[in-house]
Simulated scan of single mutants.
Amino acid sequence: MKKIVFAVAALALATTAAFADVIADRQAVMKENAKQVGTLVKMVKGEAPFDAAAVVAALTALNDNVQKIDVAASFPAGSDKGDTTASPKIWEDLAGFQAQVDKFKEVTAAAVASPAADLDALKAQVGTIGQTCGTCHEAFRVKKG
């Protein structure tokens, strides 16, 4: 009996640790996305000068990161528990969430294909990227605080 209890406890601990890794991995992706968007936003706000090479670098890094998002691998069933702001709505509407991720992939790919050549174009690109992020966050993220 002790062996069964130990085995079940070990399995539960391993499962919790696996979900913690998945959660940490997807949080790292989102933090990296925020970093790249932040570089662009600083230019839009006038906190940094427009720099076409920095725009291309930030858009490329953002797009590379976004294209790697695998909903099934990053949001497995049960990974809504723990230190996460992922909303349970993700698992209730996985197809809708996947559609939002796919839209984000399209938006970032389009931005890389035609990077902003000036500040006005960057403002438009950042607006589109921000709207895409915001739409997903409103529907599929639990607000902290």
Results as ranks from 00 to 15, higher is better:
5 V>S: 13
6 F>G: 05
6 F>T: 14
8 V>G: 01
11 L>T: 10
11 L>W: 11
13 L>Y: 02
14 A>Q: 03
14 A>R: 03
16 T>P: 08
17 A>E: 07
18 A>N: 14
19 F>N: 04
19 F>K: 00
20 A>N: 03
21 D>K: 09
21 D>W: 14
22 V>Y: 02
22 V>C: 03
26 R>H: 10
26 R>W: 11
27 Q>Y: 10
28 A>R: 15
30 M>S: 09
36 Q>Y: 07
36 Q>W: 04
37 V>M: 10
38 G>I: 01
41 V>F: 09
41 V>Q: 14
44 V>C: 07
44 V>M: 02
44 V>E: 01
47 E>M: 06
49 P>K: 06
49 P>W: 01
52 A>H: 11
56 V>G: 01
57 A>I: 07
59 L>I: 03
61 A>H: 10
62 L>M: 14
62 L>E: 01
64 D>A: 09
65 N>I: 09
68 K>S: 13
68 K>N: 13
68 K>G: 08
69 I>E: 12
73 A>V: 10
74 S>M: 15
75 F>C: 07
75 F>T: 06
76 P>T: 05
78 G>R: 11
80 D>R: 08
82 G>Y: 06
83 D>M: 08
84 T>M: 06
85 T>Q: 13
87 S>N: 01
87 S>D: 13
87 S>T: 02
87 S>V: 01
90 I>N: 05
91 W>P: 00
91 W>G: 06
93 D>H: 02
96 G>F: 13
96 G>S: 10
96 G>C: 12
100 Q>N: 15
102 D>H: 11
103 K>T: 15
104 F>D: 12
109 A>N: 04
109 A>L: 02
110 A>T: 02
111 A>V: 03
112 V>F: 08
113 A>E: 05
114 S>T: 04
114 S>Q: 10
115 P>Y: 04
116 A>M: 05
118 D>E: 07
118 D>C: 03
118 D>P: 08
121 A>W: 00
121 A>N: 02
122 L>A: 06
122 L>I: 06
125 Q>V: 05
125 Q>A: 08
127 G>N: 07
127 G>A: 05
127 G>L: 01
128 T>Y: 06
130 G>Q: 03
130 G>N: 04
131 Q>P: 05
135 T>A: 15
136 C>D: 00
140 F>Q: 00
141 R>W: 00
141 R>E: 04
141 R>H: 05
